[in-house]
Computed example of a mutant assay.
Amino acid sequence: MRSRTRTLSLIGAVAVVATVLGAGAAIAAPAIGNGWPYASTTRGDDGRTYTLAAVGDIACEPDDDDNAANPSSLKCGSPSLGGYDAEFATAKQATAMKPDAVALLGDEQYQVGKLSDFEQSFEQAWGGLKFLERPAPGNHEYYPYTKKGDNEAGQNGSGYFAYFNGHDKSGTPNSAGQAGDDTDANQGWYSYDLGRWHIVSLNVECNSPAFHNDCSTTDGGLLAQETRWLAKDLQQNQQQCTIAYWHQPTFSATTASTATVPASAAGAGGQEGQVADAWWKLLYADHATLVLNGHEHAYARMKPMDPTGASDPKHGIPEFIVGTGGEALDSLAKNSDGSYANPNVVTGYDQGFGTLKLTLGQHGYTYSYTPALQGPGLGASALDYSDSGSGDCKH
């Protein structure tokens, strides 16, 4: 499918800070209820708990006619990738959780997220959970891929929106659906409630034609409009507990440093990490409970942090990176003594694939992560990992 470009009418320059609220109303998506075998979902303080499954970086590129010219090492069947086995294993694990919703943390489909790729790979494993899935896009859904001998044009979100929101017979995505709006004014950011929890899905893929390749959060561009929307959404939120998720993390677990930014500092993930730095400030001021990210193909849980990346046990926000959906694995960044390069990483896992289970209660949450399948070439001992615990919502 050809890449789409859009014309965006820019508004006047506006400085974005935690107290600045621009035009556009906060969107609270309808409650998610799919019937048996999943519990129905209602809004408000109904006294029950909710299960949220969370994972990103999922589906390998199918080895089909549309991808015949692409390197085999990047496609399903490559021995260096998790492949179909891994994405089916994580989907089975998520299904067993009987989730009320599934937070997809970006890069649902590799390498560039064509609609045909979604249909031939992601759909095969994760299609049974489709109407519980609340996705955020990743770089592989928007940007071109020109690494490792590949040369694929960026889809600018076309395949992503066409898959999750539906499309007409020519493949043109619907303008609205479960992945949020697909318009010149909104590239799929939205929010929804599960009981007393307010959950926000954001699009950080700003170096794309849809965003006019503009990653500023303070000018008149689309990314700045999204940032103002986030500020207003948080202000209008009436729930006690808040989760926000997007793809590239603000703080890194698998990269020791960029050229200028240590892994523990805000913006370590490059330009998208710097965007997320502005969002972290808004979420911190709003006393958000959790931030979830993907992009780095490992699992990591970090200490509560302030917007600079300093440990802040009382007011900080914990970050979970869950990029272990099935496509491939990265290595956690460590120092020569074996400690994590980012000192805020409490625990991490890079030996297999798995999905995070969050149980959302009235005033707090529990979390549980166990691998569903070991990584390529690794034995069963790679499955000997687990991480679990609990936390409270902030006031």
Rank of each mutant, 00 (worst) to 15 (best):
R6A: 15
T7E: 13
A13I: 11
V16Q: 07
A25K: 10
A31I: 10
A54K: 00
G56D: 05
D57E: 06
I58D: 09
S73D: 13
C76G: 05
G77W: 12
S78R: 12
L81T: 09
A89L: 10
A89R: 10
K92E: 11
P99W: 01
A101G: 01
A103L: 06
L105P: 02
G113N: 04
G113H: 02
S116E: 01
S121I: 10
S121E: 07
A125I: 08
E133M: 15
Y145V: 03
Y145G: 01
K148R: 02
K148P: 01
G149A: 00
D150W: 02
A162D: 00
N165T: 10
G166E: 12
S170Y: 14
S175R: 15
Y190F: 15
V200M: 07
N203G: 14
C206Y: 07
C206P: 14
N207Q: 15
H212N: 15
A224F: 10
L230N: 09
N237R: 11
N237M: 07
T242R: 12
W246K: 04
T250Y: 01
F251H: 09
S252N: 11
A253Y: 05
T260S: 12
P262G: 05
A263T: 01
S264L: 06
G270V: 07
Q271D: 00
E272A: 10
G273Q: 06
W279H: 06
L282N: 03
Y284C: 06
A285F: 04
A285M: 02
N293T: 15
G294D: 03
H297R: 08
M305I: 01
D306P: 02
G325H: 10
G326E: 01
A328W: 06
D330R: 09
L332E: 05
A333M: 03
N335L: 07
S336V: 08
G352M: 01
K357H: 00
G361L: 05
Q362V: 04
T370P: 03
L373K: 15
G377R: 10
A382L: 12
D384I: 07
S386C: 09
G391N: 12
D392Y: 12
